[in-house]
Nucleic acid binder design. Structure first.
Lengths: 333, 333
DNA sequence: CCCACCATTGCACGGCTTTGCAAACTTCTT
DNA sequence: AAGAAGTTTGCAAAGCCGTGCAATGGTGGG
């Protein structure tokens, strides 16, 4: 009863006294139609509450206007900021975002891509997890564009956007040394994501270059609570670290809270901390965390630009900079 | 070239040696088809990488499976948590979420709803802003379901989900009184959202019932930075408040940071603070904020349940409880 | 052995749009 | 005034799937 069907172009055409095609053309940018006719159509459409059916349009044009965002942990500050930037920029480009939540279970990423295919999404952007190679091939084969953000790997075809972490490890080690720290630690999660593992390896290597060992600890998921646990583990060691690089801001903040409130340490006097991501909370005055700023807007811009570009080109890889943000969680020289 | 078109049911049918309708039936739950035939179809489909075209299916069935989420400020902890819960539960119900970002400009909410109509979304869920009445009518008229979350107003037709704030103001006043506070303040933003204004009014009224005046201050958007500014304004008054109810956790955290670091106040000794939302950061040990917990999962569950239900029914209003969460930002008796 | 009945299957139409093509109409030139 | 050139417009096909209806094949009962 309430299921009054949507109004179709047919009805608008009748009301405006023109043909169905005229209605279609009135709503198609750059179509050949007389201004007067368009006006009549628009008037009738407005009166009837007509809206082009994008399902049917997508069917014809073979271009749905939908872009599928595949993501987990979207409650997290970094992720939600990225989603915000992406949706915004997609809209500006005339696309619309569809979200698939893949929390828990990696197999869900595959389901997500299948969903994207079913809705004939023009592109998919993967922010979490790693799709199966065969699925990636399937997407590419179907002419779907695919963007992998911070998913360091070597799939062919899609655009990969990663952070350039050549200098990050170096910067952190230098900062710690200048602050007079000698007992370095790295606080990691057990997620084992390539980007996180790379960060760890880079830091360990850079420290070794300076003749320093790094105590590495890993625990749980990549979040605030894990940071607290990591602090408990590292701060009860015989040789208590005086500087820690946390794999993520969220981990760093948990680490700081535990160090301060459970071990009564002062930051940066007793302990220097560096994080990664530059989430809003890192700038809060209780933390004032030195960190690396994820170029969120640039990432989103690059992704959108690529998937709007005419020529797909071959497998492309983009590396963006994550600038060092100096705050007060590290003693200055 | 790379635009190899998607594989259609036609091709699967040919490969499986059956008719196109058989393919359709193989993918339709409860359709009349022999198990053996279905197997053959599924096999061929898998081999070819066939996926039902939901655009076309939606066209036929007049049910796209899409639910449109209209939201602004999605980088915010509360909003992103709600989006996460909604996407999750929608997926469990076999729907998929489409997101329209309406940051800046209220007119965008209308554009969002139009977008929802164009994609023939089965429903729209509005988390921010207020759609125009005529637009709401249009949605309803088109048989689209509409859920308004925390958008206290009196539109007919859609489901409205609000928080039951009958006791919240009372609880806060009681807590402050027990803590021995007498100079109450309310820190609000200038957003002017009905739910925020109701919170303010409720608090002022409840305090008056106890014979107490409330100093109300309003500033900027509803966020951390505004909290800091509000603290600066309230803490430089002649009569410095000894208890403040902040309209939102984010505001409360900014308030606490400014109170501590700029005015060297101890919380809860010098100042009691209560927030609202119970975002993850409220539980962080630097803050330990007493607050009200938004029943996010329940909100999402209620929304999804309603839009999956058979009978739309008439305009329905739901009030959920936001339980008081005691932490250490208020002195205990 | 024939018929009624049931489970499957194929045909063809419907749902809504876009778009190539050819017809109709303007306008302007010569 | 007729023809050329250019605009507009309508027709009809195409894009992909779901489903009512009739036909098919098979089974069991009498």
């Amino acid at each position: 009863m309430s299921d009054k069907i949507f109004v179709s172009a047919e009805e608008v055409a009748r009301k405006a006294g023109v043909s169905r095609s005229a209605v279609s053309r009135a709503f198609t940018a750059g179509a050949s139609i007389a201004p007067e006719t368009r006006r009549k159509v628009m008037e009738a459409a407005e009166a009837l509450g007509y809206h082009v059916n994008h399902l049917a349009r997508g069917l014809m044009r073979n271009e749905s206007g939908i872009v599928c965002l595949v993501v987990s942990d979207m409650g997290t500050p970094y992720r939600s900021a990225l989603i915000k930037a992406l949706t915004q920029q997609l809209q500006n480009a005339g696309k619309i975002a569809m979200i698939v939540n893949t929390d828990r279970s990696d197999e869900r990423v595959d389901m997500a891509l299948r969903q994207a295919i079913r809705y004939r999404a023009d592109a998919s952007i993967v922010l979490s997890g790693m799709p199966d190679k065969s699925l990636v091939d399937l997407c590419v084969r179907n002419g779907q564009r695919l963007v992998l953000i911070n998913r360091d790997d070597e799939h062919q075809g899609p655009l990969r956007i990663n952070l350039d972490d050549d200098d990050t490890a170096q910067s952190v080690v230098t900062a710690f040394l200048r602050a007079g720290c000698r007992r370095l630690a790295f606080a990691n999660s057990e997620a084992g994501t390539p980007s996180l593992m790379t960060r760890e390896a880079g830091f360990v290597a850079a420290a070794r270059d300076q003749g320093l060992d790094v105590t590495v600890e890993r625990f749980g998921p990549t979040g605030y609570e894990s940071g607290k646990v990591l602090a408990q583990r590292l701060m009860t060691r015989r040789e208590r670290p005086d500087a820690v690089f946390c794999v993520t801001d969220l981990v760093a903040l948990g680490f700081m809270d535990a160090a301060r409130h459970q071990f009564s340490l002062s930051i940066p006097e007793d302990l220097c901390v560096v994080g990664f991501d530059d989430i809003p909370q890192a700038a809060w005055s209780s933390y004032d965390l030195t960190t690396f700023s994820q170029p969120i807007e640039e990432i989103a811009a690059a992704a959108v630009a690529w998937l709007m570009s005419e020529d797909v080109g071959q497998s492309q890889s983009l590396r963006l900079n994550a600038p060092f943000v100096w705050r007060r969680s590290v003693r200055s020289a």
